[in-house]
Structure formats: C-alpha cells, structure tokens
Design a protein around this nucleic acid. Sequence first.
DNA 1: AATTTGTCCAACCGCCTTTGT
DNA 2: AACAAAGGCGGTTGGACAAAT
Length: 281
Amino acid sequence: MLGRTQRCSDESGLKKGPWSPEEDEILVEYIERHGHGSWSALPKVAGLNRCGKSCRLRWNNYLRPDIKRGKFSQQEEQLIINLHALLGNKWAAIAGHLPGRTDNEIKNFWNTHLKKKLIQMGLDPITHIPRSDHQNLLTNLQQILANASIFSTLSNTCDNTNNALRLLPSDATQLAKLHLLHNIVQYNPFEVLGLNNDSNLQSFCNGTSIGFPSQNQLPNLHNFETLQHLNGSTSVAHTPSSNSVLPNQVSASPEECYYSTVNFDCMDVETSDVYWKDLIE
DNA sequence: AATTTGTCCAACCGCCTTTGT
DNA sequence: AACAAAGGCGGTTGGACAAAT
C-alpha cells in the first residue's frame, strides 16, 4: 500500500545521518530505564529528534549492551558460510545463530569478505557450488584438483576412529572428477549417467557398468547422506540440484577444511547433524 | 604531497509481514 | 474482511579512512 509506512525523511525536521554521542546517551539511558516500548513513540518521549525506525536501528545494531564487537572468529566465519548455504541471504536468521552479532554486521561481513572469498575459490556466492561459466572452468579445474589433493591428505590424517571420513587418495581424485563433470553438464552426474536408482548405482559401484571406476575407486558416498537428506527435505531456493550427492558447503578457510563432511569433524557441536536438521526445520 | 582508487560499515530506503482496530 | 500502523528485513548508499599511484 503506497505510503503506508511513513518514511523518516518525510517527517519534517527530523535529524538523519550519523548519531552523536549525546543522542546515543539519551537513547541508552531511556531504554535502560523504560525499555523501548513503542519505537514510534520513543523519540518523542525520550526527547530525540529522530524517527522511531532510526532509534530502533541504532539500538539494535550498535547500542545494545550484548553486542559483540571485533573481528569474526574462524568458527563464526565458518558458521556464517554454512548457514548461508542453507538459508541464503536471511541475515536475521543467520544472526540468530551467532550470539552478539547483528544481521547488519553479518551482512556487511558477507558482502565485504566472505562473498569475495567464495568467488576467489571459484564458487558461486549465491549457490555455493562451483561456478560453471567458461571463464571459471579452468579455475574450477585447478581448484578441484587442489581440493582433491588436500581432501585426500585430510582424509588420511583424520581421526582414525571416524571411519566414515576416511577416503583413499583415489577416492578424492574420483570425487573431484565427478565434481567437475557435475559442473560441466550442470546436472547431477549420477542422474546423467543413469545412476539415480539403487540398482544402477549398485552396478556402477560394482564396476559392472561400462567405462566407469570400480568400487574401490569410488568415494564413500555414505559420507554425503546427511547433506543429501537435508537438501532433499527443504525448499531452500539456493540449491539448484536438490538431489545432488555433492556437498554445497565450503569451509571458511581453504587450508583448513574443504568439504562439509570434513568440516563436521572440525567444527563444534553446533554443526552436528541434529543441529542442522533442527535448523532448517 | 596530492590525487585516485579501494575498502569498510553505519545508516537509510522501501518492501513485506504482523498486529491491532 | 479491510484497512492502517508499526515492526522487521534485505538491499543499497555515502562518507570516512587507508592504500596505492
């Protein structure tokens, strides 16, 4: 409805722009004493020449006592990337999982740091999957092969009690190849290869299908069940191939964790299966 | 030293949703 | 059910500052 929300700028004489220390003091003092109550009424009763919306923003993004300041930690960075892969640009929802951080702060951090980081890694910052345009194909290839190398190293040095995370070097290479194939054809490679049902996949794994690797050359697809399950059970708009077996989450730092299956091992309790399941439900 | 370019982030804008009448 | 007001959210902007030329 046109004009339903009165804009701050429409209200004559109300101050705009940066807040002065005096204004901050008035706002903080008022809210500490009375709570914010109705934001639209607050400026008048508190004695501020601002619109309510501006006061709410100032309080929520800057003056609130529980706001955490300073650099984002590696864990926070990782969490933002993973949450963004699941939720997209739902900054408020993402902020809900990072105590002390505001949606504005996270949004700014994403736009100035994380987005560029993903692009540098050859990943689409919206979908979190490798970019498939021609300009990025070679970058992708290099990236994927590098990933394969580090992934296999990581797999072999991982905690031996976690068998699900152990991959042979050839598995990692094979995974990289599949990943690349996925990029090129822009479809789920298992679908393209006719491996999207159990019996075909079984024959693929047994090496009875023509021209493809035998069982011991395949990555342990079981590792991706969690993500596959999550992708399949949500309507997240940013998951172009919802039944893809390839993970679409990336680590905050390439040198640390390459795929989310490994990330689960690197991250704290918040990244457990139950956590993610609850999150998207 | 002066100018240009790039980066960061607080704050604004406009749209959508929720709530109250 | 219809409407209006308020709250909430995501996209964008513009000014301050730093780095590069």
